[in-house]
Amino acid sequence: MGHGGGGVLSAELVRDVFAPAFGGAHLAQLGDSAVLELGGARIAFSTDTFVVRPLFFPGGSIGDLAVNGTVNDLAMSGAVPAYLACGFVLEEGVELETVARVADSLGAAARRAGVEVVTGDTKVVESGHGDGLYVNTSGIGLIAPGVDIRPQRARPGDVVMVSGPIGVHGVAVMSVREGLEFGVEIVSDCAPLGDLVRSLIAAVPDVHVLRDPTRGGLAAALNEIAASAGVGVTVDERAVPVPAEVANACAILGLDPWYVANEGKLVAFVPAEHADAALAALRSHPLGAQAAVIGTCTDQHPGMVVARTGLGGTRVVDLPLGEQLPRIC
């Protein structure tokens, strides 16, 4: 199970198995989407497969995730998402009504995200082989000339910001999946980020890095950026927005909200001189109203993410493991 967790194991799988087997130069960049030159245009291209349980949760469904996940991966390259392809894997016996609900939500999500589903495929697998329903989406989007956004561009001095509170989506999905009752319903904030990114780039064309902190959460996203750019990241623990109900749920379960998945949030690395403009641009968009500066990029401790604690200490923030194993002896 650990290989899907967005942590050490999946990074190893990509690095040690897939990248050498496929061997392409573009794959070697290991970004969430590939940036390609095609007929004089620069295109972002991405694919993602959705195996989430349950299919429906407060604030969304697997259909919303299938659109937003791919659209957001494209947006993180600074692309304007345009077209999606969509593949369904259905388990024999899955109710037609369920498929229809997923399809409806997928269509609605595509319209909200401003993208068109232009091609698709459906396969049926034997009962017992498919867990109901899986969805794959692939998408393309156009990157404006001059825009160069990728993890490797993080530079010491960059200001690090998030577009809003973290941990909400992951806790929402988990509480439904595991039947947990926290007393208050936590609703997923899953959303498409194409438009938010477009307004950010309009205000600050020289954004260095964008990342959607999905699997492995904020901790994984920051670690991946630190590792790919060979820089350090210092985060002020108290500046990271975590809604009280998420913090409470995580405390009860013994989870760290920094490791909980998001879909509909982004992390941005912006040159210091443009930080105010970038924050203002994010905050003027409905999906970025609670954006916050959470830290800075540094040449100290390259490859490492460090949190400044309320007490003035410096905690090292690791890449998540498959499971959160205790280290206390």
């Binding site: 595991e178 039947g179 947990l180 926290f182 007393g183 749920a249 009860i252 959160q324």
Partner: peptide, 15 residues
């Protein structure tokens, strides 16, 4: 509240 969630957590083996 913590007892309720902890019971569910232990039942499901979650984390």
């Amino acid at each position: 509240e913590e007892r309720r969630v902890l019971a569910q957590q232990l039942e499901r083996g979650l984390n």
